[in-house]
Amino acid sequence: METKSIMIVGVGGQGSLLASRLLGNVLLAQGYDVKVSEVHGMSQRGGSVVTYVRYGDKVYSPVIEKGEADAVISFELLEAARCLPYLKKGGHLITSTQQIDPMPVITGAAKYPEDLTEKLSAAGADLVAVDALTLAEQAGTSKAANVVLMGVLASKMDFPEELWQKALEQCVPAKFLELNKKAFELGKNA
């Protein structure tokens, strides 16, 4: 199988590391060669963060570049727009509708673009926009928005349900497991 590429993007602190670990474990259990590339350190402090997940028979580069992603999952709307160029033509763009102002917007040096979901659709992306924050709060905490979006992704992929459940058990501490399973379910049915 040709190597597939999925990008998970958001704002530092939104939980992209857990999301990529979940996906990585599902892919490993499916028997694929897998590479997951993360960003640590300074960029994690409220900046744009990008995680690359690649899988197939044999994966070389851990990095996804412009025009290469089969899917982009974004935890924040502006980051979805920023990463649109990475999406292959016809690729899936799954985004939370949450908006977090970056510092140049906070200081007044720049404006948060308006009507981004419409513009992303118009630009040819196969767009799914979900209010992941509200769904996560329904599950019990706004922090689970990452797992809600993984639920949305799961509904687009053809992997057995039990692999996702097992990955959740592997990656989430026991006391938060039920909450995250609920968040995942809400995402899947969104």
Binding site: S48, K89, M103, P104, P113
Partner: peptide, 11 residues
């Protein structure tokens, strides 16, 4: 690849 014409503020 596709891109928006919009100016995307840095983060």
């Amino acid at each position: 690849f596709n891109a928006l014409e919009e100016n995307i503020p840095v983060r």
